[in-house]
Simulated scan of single mutants.
Amino acid sequence: MVELNFMFFALAIPAVIFAGISKGGFGSGVAFASASILALILEPGQALALMLPLLMIIDLATLRPFWNRWSWPDARLLILGGLPGVAAGAWLYTATDADLLRLLIGAISLGFVLWHLAQSSGWIRSFATRLPAWAGLIAGAVAGFTSFVSHAGGPPAAVYLLSQKLSKTEFQATTVLTFWALNIAKFIPYAWLGMFTLQTAWANLLLAPFALLGAWLGVRAHWMLSERLFFRIAYILLTLTGTKLIWDALT
């Protein structure tokens, strides 16, 4: 049960604003930190269910500023690949327990940080040529799966999109369109699995203004804020929350 107390709002409000800024301005790459943060005080399924409607609100708020600036061929590949990934995530959810979900969310959080460190250190080089269409389908499948189990579809999608040499705005718009579609696809199995409750719905209603505020800030930050500063904060959050979730899962 989601208890709407001071501790909940102290963590949930900044987490939701952070998700809005990430999805609104920086390609959704670290928006899943919000679910990782909430999973510190909620059951993982509750954290995921609570965040999904808020992420969908952010999607709607950010579609218009980037309307028709996306690369439709790339978005189509990621969406088509993402649908079976969502189905695989739904199957895993029915076959696992809360501790394994905590372990997955924590591992994905730390994996994202390690992937970034490897890139910035030169251990992983950027792609010299564009990845082929089949790679987009695979990236979409991984994005759909990780998005279902942790709202962390951004990194696998980014691996493919970065190889396509898109502009910053094309990259952002394509990401917004892709996860707008995949989040709609996730809503159906989330509801079927009984992940939504009256408590999560009430919490969504109270947190919706903060989701919109984050989206508004993100769109403006896309043109103004230093990406380096934003992602440094994100990596610290992901490292701390990921480590705590893995510890909780194992102990």
Rank of each mutant, 00 (worst) to 15 (best):
Q46N: 08
I41N: 07
A49D: 01
I21K: 12
L48P: 09
I37T: 14
S22F: 02
E43S: 10
G24A: 12
I41L: 12
Q46L: 02
M51K: 05
L54P: 04
G27F: 05
I41D: 08
I37F: 07
I57K: 02
L40A: 05
E43H: 09
Q46I: 03
K23N: 11
V30A: 14
L52W: 00
A19I: 12
M56R: 07
L40H: 10
A33V: 08
A35E: 13
A33F: 12
S34D: 13
M51V: 03
M56L: 15
Q46A: 11
V30P: 03
M56T: 15
A35F: 00
G25P: 11
M51C: 10
I37Q: 02
V30K: 00
A35N: 09
A39R: 14
A39M: 05
F32S: 15
K23S: 09
L42R: 00
Q46T: 09
S34L: 01
A39H: 13
Q46K: 04
L50H: 02
P53R: 09
E43G: 07
E43M: 04
P53C: 01
S28T: 13
F26H: 08
A31T: 01
L52M: 07
L48Y: 09
G27C: 12
E43N: 04
L50N: 03
G25I: 02
L54E: 01
L54C: 02
G24K: 13
E43C: 01
A39T: 03
A49P: 03
G25M: 11
L42I: 07
A19V: 10
A31W: 09
A39D: 10
F26Q: 12
M51I: 07
A19E: 07
M56P: 05
G20Q: 00
F26N: 14
L52A: 11
A31E: 05
S28H: 15
L50K: 00
G27P: 15
A33C: 03
L55M: 14
G29I: 14
I41Y: 03
V30F: 06
F26R: 06
G25Q: 09
Q46E: 12
S22A: 15
A47K: 05
L40R: 05
M51T: 10
L38H: 10
S28G: 15
L50E: 02
P44R: 08
I57H: 02
L48D: 06
L48C: 02
E43V: 00
P44N: 02
A33R: 03
A19C: 06
A39V: 06
G25S: 13
G20Y: 00
F26M: 15
Q46G: 11
G20A: 06
G45Q: 06
A49R: 07
I57R: 01
G24T: 04
I57W: 03
A39W: 15
K23Q: 15
A31P: 07
I57P: 00
G20F: 02
L50C: 06
F26K: 10
S34Q: 10
A19K: 02
L40G: 11
A35T: 15
L52T: 07
G24C: 12
A35I: 06
G27N: 13
A47M: 09
S28P: 05
A49Q: 06
L48S: 08
P53G: 00
G45E: 10
L50Q: 04
M56N: 08
S34V: 14
